[in-house]
């Protein structure tokens, strides 16, 4: 006589429809972050790019110049070291470093924890410098109002065509290091055109944090974001 089946094995097969977001917990935290930033009267920008496209250099100059009149804060993400936070910490801005270990992107929870340790009184802009990566950060809403994607003259003009998800999600695209575009043979107009093909919604600014070209247009944009209180 066969052994009777265990009660659990006798259960009928069921199909359960869920339609649940795989990023549900991140998205929930992102909504909470967005609410918190709004309550603080702060516009949050998520800066995304490949490693080495000039996020930290741009932030250094922005915190020193734009940040002199308008209080700004920053959180910076890297796999390891607090080098970026120390660089940005030389300005008077409150800065927190997030070290992600092996994680290839920031998520909304990491940002919430990092922001929790900052004195944000009077801050009008929060810069979130994501881990250098053009793939993974695309999927993770951090609660920012404005997503800024950087593309430097040291890269290929066709990057927007090669990495559509991240460029598609951009509100602003900064073409950086344009002061050395000539030397590197980087066609700034071709890059701008590729951005417009993938992300016609994005505002494109050509700038150099070193020479200062285009930097005023960037500060004007930040100023208008602060005044409108959103992206």
């Amino acid at each position: 006589m066969p052994t009777p089946l265990a009660p659990s094995a006798q259960k009928a097969t069921r199909t359960v429809e869920l339609r649940l977001s795989l990023l549900e917990s991140n998205d929930r935290q992102a909504v909470a972050n967005r609410r918190r930033f709004k309550e603080l009267g702060m516009v949050a920008l998520n800066l995304v790019s490949s490693p080495g496209s000039g996020k930290t250099t741009l932030l250094e100059r922005t915190l020193a110049e734009f940040g002199a009149a308008t209080r700004c804060a920053a959180v910076v993400g890297d796999l390891a070291t607090d080098n970026d936070a120390r660089r940005l910490g030389r300005t008077r801005a409150p800065v927190a470093q997030i070290t992600t270990g092996s994680a290839c992107h920031l998520d909304a929870g990491m940002v919430a924890r990092a922001v929790g340790g900052l004195d944000l009184a009077g801050a009008r802009i929060l810069f979130i410098e994501n881990v250098g990566n053009l793939v993974c950060p695309a999927s993770f809403d951090l609660g920012e109002q404005v997503r800024v994607v950087l593309l430097s003259a040291a890269e290929g003009e066709d990057k927007p065509l090669k990495y559509p998800p991240i460029f598609k999600s951009a509100h602003v695209v900064l073409l950086t290091k344009v002061d050395v575009a000539g030397v590197l043979g980087f066609d700034v107009e071709a890059a701008a055109q590729n951005v417009r093909r993938i992300a016609p919604q994005a505002r494109v600014i050509r700038l150099s944090a070193k020479s200062g070209e285009g930097i005023k247009e960037w500060y004007d944009l930040l100023g208008s974001l602060v005044n409108s209180g959103k992206g």
Partner: peptide, 15 residues
């Protein structure tokens, strides 16, 4: 974009 960003746990079959 109308669709294409979906990332969803749609259905589970269990017993």
């Amino acid at each position: 974009l109308v669709q294409g960003r979906e990332l969803e746990l749609t259905r589970i079959v269990m017993s």
